Amino acid sequence: MAAAFALAAASLGLWASSSSASPAAAVPTPDHVVVVVFENHAYDQVVGSSSAPYINSLVRGGANLTQSFAETHPSQPNYYALFSGDTQGVTDDSCVDIGFSDAPNLASELADAGKSWGSYNESLPSEGSTVCRSGDYAQKHNPWFGFSNVPLSSAHTFDAFPADYSQLPTVSFVIPNLCSDMHDCSVATGDNWLRNNLKSYADWAQNHNSLLLLTFDEDNRLSGNRIPTVLYGQPVRAGSSTDTTYNHYDVLHTLEDMYGTAHAGNAANAQDITGIWNN
């Protein structure tokens, strides 16, 4: 009887181990992920639009989430949701108190897992600057400044984006300025900016187990908050798409599972993005 009990216990242990590992096993582990966040456009304004030829080339060569949704309006709470699994009480676009929260977030989780993090912010006046607004730069699109557990030194100007992509952090966010992100300027302007600044990274990612993830903070308030989300790189099955409903919390959950971190806030109850990977 004791032997039978030990065997049953061992079998249960194996099952539990396999079960707990399965969500993370559903997604790849890229060497690098670069997340680019654009602004205030609905899915149909970008995907299939002649104004966005480069983004649509990424759709054809990568993966398209056809039912991807933001959380709320206006912009800033969506950035907090994407970064930390919670809007952290932020309800508008006002500048926040620096380091007002110590809640878990993608950067702190990556650090705890021994991985690296960085943000690259176009028009940020200087490395780690906490200024509220400067020209076309706006703090409201940079949620990392709201967290005391994210070093200010990890917030870089976009000029610091490395030419040697192997030197990128494990996960980084790229935040274009208010014109380049389509907030104040056209879809064509943002598409050209992406092609001119990140095409070489996207091409490199195809042969270096790395990923470009393009998404939007919110729609134009006219499409139920349905937004474009496109993934591109070697781990992605070219030309794939999924009509599963995903949101910012699912994107965060997927990034967390790629590196075996904990799940922040509402990402704990979210799902992995599946059906688009090569393996």
Rank of each mutant, 00 (worst) to 15 (best):
A63L: 06
S57Y: 01
L255W: 03
A113I: 14
L194P: 01
Y80F: 09
M1Q: 04
S49P: 12
T254R: 14
S17V: 11
G114F: 08
K140V: 10
W193Y: 10
T244K: 09
T189R: 14
A16P: 04
W277T: 09
R60F: 09
K115R: 13
A4M: 13
L214S: 04
G260V: 05
S75I: 09
D159P: 06
P143N: 07
H141K: 05
S101A: 08
D250V: 12
N64A: 01
S108F: 00
G89D: 07
S166P: 00
P151Y: 00
N78R: 07
T130G: 05
A264V: 12
Q45S: 04
L7K: 02
Q234M: 04
A70D: 11
F173V: 06
N196P: 04
T72D: 15
V59T: 08
T157Q: 12
H183M: 12
T66Y: 01
N78S: 03
F161Y: 07
Y43W: 07
S186F: 11
S148Y: 02
N196D: 13
V171A: 03
Q206D: 12
L12V: 12
I55E: 15
V187L: 14
S223E: 12
N192D: 04
F5Y: 09
S123V: 07
P228T: 01
P169E: 07
T157M: 13
H183F: 15
P30W: 00
N197S: 12
S75E: 04
L211A: 00
L58A: 04
S19P: 13
A8I: 07
A70P: 07
P162G: 14
N209A: 08
F69V: 14
S126F: 05
E127Q: 14
M1W: 10
W144R: 02
